[in-house]
Design a binder for these strands. Sequence first.
DNA 1: TTGATTCTTGACTGGTTCGTCCATAACGCT
DNA 2: AGCGTTATGGACGAACCAGTCAAGAATCAA
Lengths: 198, 198
Amino acid sequence: MARPRKFDEQQVLDTARERFWSGGYAATRMEDIAEATGLGKGSLYGAFGGKQELFHRVFDAYCTSVVDAASRQLRGTDADAYARLSAHVYAVAAATAADTAHRGCLLAKGAAELAEHDETVAKRARAAIEALQALLEDDIAACQRNGDIAADADPGKLAVLVLAVLRGIEALGKAGASEETLTDIARTALAVLPRTAH
Amino acid sequence: MARPRKFDEQQVLDTARERFWSGGYAATRMEDIAEATGLGKGSLYGAFGGKQELFHRVFDAYCTSVVDAASRQLRGTDADAYARLSAHVYAVAAATAADTAHRGCLLAKGAAELAEHDETVAKRARAAIEALQALLEDDIAACQRNGDIAADADPGKLAVLVLAVLRGIEALGKAGASEETLTDIARTALAVLPRTAH
DNA sequence: TTGATTCTTGACTGGTTCGTCCATAACGCT
DNA sequence: AGCGTTATGGACGAACCAGTCAAGAATCAA
């Protein structure tokens, strides 16, 4: 019936994410995104509404992908629960160290810039954090069932502690900490968790 | 000889800090600061040079104050070292929870927005983080000398872990975590540190 | 008092940016 | 092919903002 779109919406979102991620929300111009995608501004506004709505779409997708990635790393059998936790913590440290541009995590960056004045962003960030916490708690509980972590510890409290360490790794990475430092944090954090004596 | 300034430079810096802290760098207009201080734009530019230089002044002073506050909380005798560490960790959790506007820490916020593209901000943030790490390490070493923390642990590695937890508390606070959650993180973090059996 | 010097004020400039509009193009249904 | 519908893209409008500038004000030394 009507003229079809020439562009792939997902590709535009990916490109927009890169721009917002590198420059932040305020410092990224809609025209940057238009040029980077090859679209005209009219198409961009027609498809996404405006800068704020576009950022909301990008931010939402990013949060989803972060939680999904953690979910893939953390879900599984009780027998592997501790190995998964350990791998996840090291993976966050490695990923942060690999981010040589120190862009950090868009979740943290976007929340830092906008959460105070944008309830949508604040809510989405909160939901993502809660999801990550739940994933960690489930995995830690699995560790306990398998006898890897002391059964008398509160899995919820260990989970938020680990989450704080992970967010802290990210923050220190952005501040310029070396890969060695970040790996040390991961190793030390895992080492101080209350283990069960085998 | 010449007409003296009518305003107090320190007061202007304080006001500018509030604006940058609430709105971020890009979203704060020089005219906002001019209105908030009652100064004309000409005076502002005459005294501070420009927006970027003004932010650098504000950011530098903020970093200094953060490190100074930590220094006051963490320096002292070996006998009190563990009490100081504990008090400091709880204080960060309480301060983060008290920040109901979720502005977070200007050090983190400024670094998140600007560090990637502003070497001066990046350097200053790095220096502040390193100073905090050194303060924690000194205090943890004092704890070890006093027999409060296991002597075989590496004080440097425990220090960066604690620092990561503190930065993580700050990040989760901005994401909307409750005071109870933040206090739990503080408590759990202190509980998992390797203590010496008395 | 006079004059040299620095501060103050706010209007102005030049550039930038969000968002709109419209003429045109592309598609599928009939 | 003709038509209705939606996409395109670039020009345009309006607002905004960093930084400048010039005219006047305040101070003190001589």
